[in-house]
Amino acid sequence: MDQLRSVCRQAISENKAAFIIGYTEDKHHHLKPFIAHNVEETEKLTFNCNAVNNLAVFIHRFHNPSQGKIGIVLKPCDLKAINALVQENRVKREDLYVIGVNCSGVVKDQNKEFSKENTQIKCRSCASKTPAWFDVVVGESAEFELPEDDMAILMKQIDEMTPEQRLEFWNAEFEKCLKCYACREVCPMCYCEQCIADKTEPRWIESSSTTRANFTWNMIRAFHQAGRCIGCGECDRVCPADIPLSLLNRKMGMVAFKEFGYRHGTDMNAPTLIGTFSTSDHEEFIR
């Protein structure tokens, strides 16, 4: 990872970036998010198949153009979040110094070696091992064998259910929810200044963690992600109750693609689906 460190060192010393949002290794040999504020701290940066976090979520917190550009280490899949955030006017391309990394997949369980079985769900449907754009790119990507996409299998099963069975399925899943909001906090696309779940005047979503209130919360989040989710799977990864949250987002994304031919986060210059009005829309009510 000398290449990554030297690129990051240069970025800071040559004022290409004010600081770097990257990964560092902890004592368990797991990778975790790390902010390198100066040249010395870039020595702690690293990247490997344990780099599961989508660092784009930190953009919201550290975005202060007056301090200089944000340097950020991004996998090809995480870059989609940046595209989406540029599309949604949350960040400007020119405020970023993107250090792309070629990726060969990341693990599901950091305690185990990378293997066909031990890959993140998102890797199983990933088509881009090299970042679509970058200021600088490091690393090499290797081909790896992909296991079956469990999420696709589960989605097929749910598609085949009756509405009643589907309700039962999701009720059982949402009953497990603790309302810790890790899904929201880890999501690069959940950036509202005040989340609807926190609004009290009026209270839109019951703050209790009953099956009904959990259902409301998770469904509203899914709706707010409709056609916006970029599929990084972070919500699934962090859910302490193991609710397959990204399944909902993925389904919504598929519907958006089928109906409008649109996939969020693939082109930073494209107008957003929700933010676009077209007189040729096939729905009459909107014309």
């Binding site: 880890v186 703050s207 209130a213 962090v238």
Partner: peptide, 25 residues
């Protein structure tokens, strides 16, 4: 605390965290 996301995962899986809110539904 620099990279903390301010979620409640740690408190909610914890055996001893006990802070609570009181709300009317």
């Amino acid at each position: 605390g620099e990279t903390c996301l301010s979620c409640g995962q740690c408190a909610f899986v914890c055996p001893t965290c006990h802070c609570f809110d009181i709300v009317d539904e």
